[in-house]
Design a protein around this nucleic acid. Structure first.
Lengths: 217, 217
DNA sequence: GGATTAATATATCGATCGATGCAGAAATCC
DNA sequence: GGATTTCTGCATCGATCGATATATTAATCC
């Protein structure tokens, strides 16, 4: 099910093929499939049988390439952050003001979380319930990933305070936590079937308070 | 582990004890324990062995009293709504205005979701990921429970429009969805360790937009 | 007391869980 | 070519999953 010519994906440009029998599947593609499955079903609910079927490989190949279910999930989480989550933050990073950054973050989140049908609904990180008893290592991983989002917002707000966009009287940590709350909540609504327009309306309402406060001066 | 005198909990006031050997455990107390376990760990992650241990009964007693794991979860969800979730809505129901109702709902949610250490963090309904593949019946149950919260808010907002508190130009469905989003997001933050003061600050920020909009007139 | 009814304790059911042992297959090195 | 290395397919490991069969115990009815 995989052309034999595509087995060189992890090799350096200078050749030097590894010694033994080459891997018959595309590791990156298999990881992408595993990511979508974990994203859709969660860690506990996704079985090795589910994974091997979706990835199109046998269990020994999975363990040889990824180590364990936990290690595969950790790698899938990293893949998700790079392949999906980072896209949501692109406009945020490029925005000229903190207000515009947050506005675009929430708008882009509304669009990404509802998706276009080619990936699961909601955010894999926000909706992950790993760490509720057992798998403490993965739980810490997910929690830190969630905290990273808020930290990005908080850092941007702090910069805006330094630049005079936002008055020093504003609690940037609290405001960042509010943005994180809205973004997290949108994932739950997206899972329940809220569409893009509905979440965009939520994002707009969340932003309407911005100008009412001293921030928007 | 249970006094034999407490076996009459489901009997009518007029006596008429059931025929056979009486149940040796308190069904309501066992349900309460099961609820807390499902609340903390989720449906899939909680095993029958976990349940029987926490409830202090054997597996056959569990199945005789509750039918199945799915039926027990459904009953636990109902118990949660009556014993915990309804408390959060008490002030909402009693408030004199829609604005005050929503404000108290978010404030009380902040308090309830962080708790006082005697129950799991976050909302069992909001954080439930049942229904992501398999268990479609329970998934529908949880989704409808989530929708019920938003419907309550929307109905209150609609009433406020009828009473002139909120202008007819306001999209009450969208505003209700915003409130639901903030409330849902707070559950995720609570699970990650956000304390009561932090979530109250989130609730306050969510409300600050209220007066800025036409609603607060 | 004897008959009837229901709950408990013990042991275990088949299925599935995550994870491997092993033999054959496909590549490199020499 | 032969030796070596690594991946794949098949079979299966012990543990745990949700759920029960069976025998015993404890109550009511008569």
């Amino acid at each position: 099910m995989q052309k034999s010519g595509s087995t060189a994906q992890t090799r350096g440009a200078a050749g030097a093929r590894p010694r033994g029998r080459p891997r018959a599947f595309d590791r990156a593609a298999a990881l992408a499939q595993a990511t979508r499955l974990f994203w859709q079903k969660g860690y506990e609910t996704t079985s090795i049988a589910d994974l091997t079927e979706a990835m199109g490989i046998g269990a020994p190949s999975l363990y040889a390439a990824f180590g364990s279910k936990e290690a595969l999930y950790a790698e899938a989480l990293r893949y998700y952050q790079e392949a999906y989550d980072s896209l949501v933050w692109a406009s945020f990073m490029a925005a000229g003001s903190a207000r515009e950054a947050v506005r675009l973050l929430l708008r882009d989140s509304a669009a990404a979380l509802t998706g276009n049908g080619d990936h699961p609904l909601g955010c894999m990180i926000a909706l992950s319930s790993v760490g509720s008893e057992g798998h403490e290592e993965l739980g810490a991983l997910v929690r830190s990933a969630r905290a990273a989002g808020r930290d990005r917002v908080e850092a941007r707000l702090a910069r805006a305070v330094a630049e005079g966009e936002i008055p020093v009287s504003v609690d940037v940590a609290g405001l960042a936590r509010f943005v994180q709350t809205v973004q997290a909540g949108m994932s739950i609504l997206a899972r329940d079937g809220a569409d893009r327009a509905e979440l965009e309306a939520v994002a707009d309402i969340a932003m309407q308070g911005w100008d009412a406060r001293a921030c928007g001066a």
